[in-house]
Computed example of a mutant assay.
Amino acid sequence: MKRNITCPCGEQITGQDEDDLVAKTQAHLKEKHPGHDYSRDEILFMAY
């Protein structure tokens, strides 16, 4: 299960599970990078 991702801006995002990671990543993108929307599959592809 993937629970970590590093945004190109340098922010580390960690979730309790994949669903939490996707939600936190999408919230980060919405707040810090408007217009950069990624699907669940795209986020999990980049996650580790």
Rank of each mutant, 00 (worst) to 15 (best):
H36W: 11
Q26G: 10
E18R: 11
K2P: 05
F45D: 14
I13C: 02
K2L: 02
L21P: 03
D19C: 02
Q26F: 01
E11T: 15
D41H: 06
K30M: 09
E42T: 10
G35N: 06
A27Q: 11
H28D: 04
M46S: 07
G10W: 00
P8A: 02
K2N: 14
T14M: 09
K2H: 03
G15P: 03
Y48P: 01
R40H: 07
G35R: 10
L29H: 07
Q26K: 14
G10P: 04
Q12N: 14
E18W: 06
E18S: 12
P8K: 14
N4F: 15
H33N: 05
G10D: 12
L21V: 11
G10T: 08
Y48F: 04
T25G: 00
H33P: 04
N4R: 15
A47Y: 09
Q12V: 04
M46L: 07
M1K: 13
Q16A: 15
M1V: 15
K30W: 01
E11A: 13
I43Y: 02
M46T: 04
E31Y: 03
C7G: 03
K32G: 00
C7Q: 09
L44K: 01
E11Q: 12
E18L: 10
K24D: 06
L21R: 10
R3M: 08
L21I: 09
K2C: 01
I13L: 14
K24M: 06
A47P: 03
M46H: 05
R40D: 12
S39W: 02
G35E: 05
K24A: 11
A27H: 07
E31K: 15
D17N: 15
M1I: 15
Q16M: 11
C9A: 12
T6G: 05
L21G: 03
I5W: 01
G35A: 14
E11N: 14
D41F: 04
K2A: 05
D17L: 06
A47S: 14
E31H: 08
